[in-house]
Amino acid sequence: MIEKPGIGRPLAHVVLVLGVLVVAFPIYYTFIASTQSLTTILRPPLPLTPGDQIAANYGEALFGGIGRIGGVAVTTLLFNTLVMALGIALGKIFISILSAFAVVFFRFPLRMVFFWLIFVTLMLPVEVRILPTYKVMVDLGMIDTYAGLILPLIASATATLLFRQFFMTIPSELVEAARIDGAGPLRFLRDILLPLSKTNIAALFVILFIYGWTQYLWPLLVTNDNQMNTIVIALKKMVSFADADTPWHMVMVTSILAILPPVLVVVLMQRWFVRGLVESEK
């Protein structure tokens, strides 16, 4: 080792602990606030330990009448968000695998034309074309539908490109062996390619699930009906309705509920997530 047995390593631990405190503090603080009564919250500074309202606040948010946001139950909002996040993650993985499979394992007229057609969409997020996309949604009658929440966000090439990269590393002989073994393209996809892509799929699932869960601008535009809101949108609406009497304790409870599922997905699937993130580079 180069490092002298001295202050180097303990110092690093100190830095990291401080870093963790800074990074995790906003979330911890939100949790603290979610366990206090509104009156405690409105009289800063807030204590640093959980309050006694935890059961009351969470009970009210999940089952109580006042916990309903804009007339919608939290469970409905969570369900909407889950549908959107799963729809985006699974939908994108599905269409990306198919198109990457076509581009890598077949030769056909206009192959590169199609590839570029998809590739161009690589980094153009929906944010740059919100207004025209919104008009398209209106024309198609997709406002306030799950399809309207999901489909426009699937139109991107990142996942396709990732799968293409991976498929290109599959040795040719594996394809040939499968053909000799009597596997057609779809059987090859199911029996060989998908099992080999497991890690990539898991990583991409985490990344896309987070992406879908945390969307804001698009669901804001494409949902008019409160029943179709995602939890993030509803949360924002709770604050902006009337600043003076924002029920901050309920906002904090809802925030925790909005943060928890994606945090769980990231932490529990950390291994794949990290590998996928760093390997795919976005």
Partner: peptide
């Protein structure tokens, strides 16, 4: 690492709300 990756999973709008709070 586990403690530091949390914010990645927080929606930007929610992050904004927390800081506003």
């Amino acid at each position: 690492r586990t403690m530091l990756i949390w914010p990645y999973a927080v929606a930007p709008a929610v992050a904004g709300l927390l800081f506003l709070f």
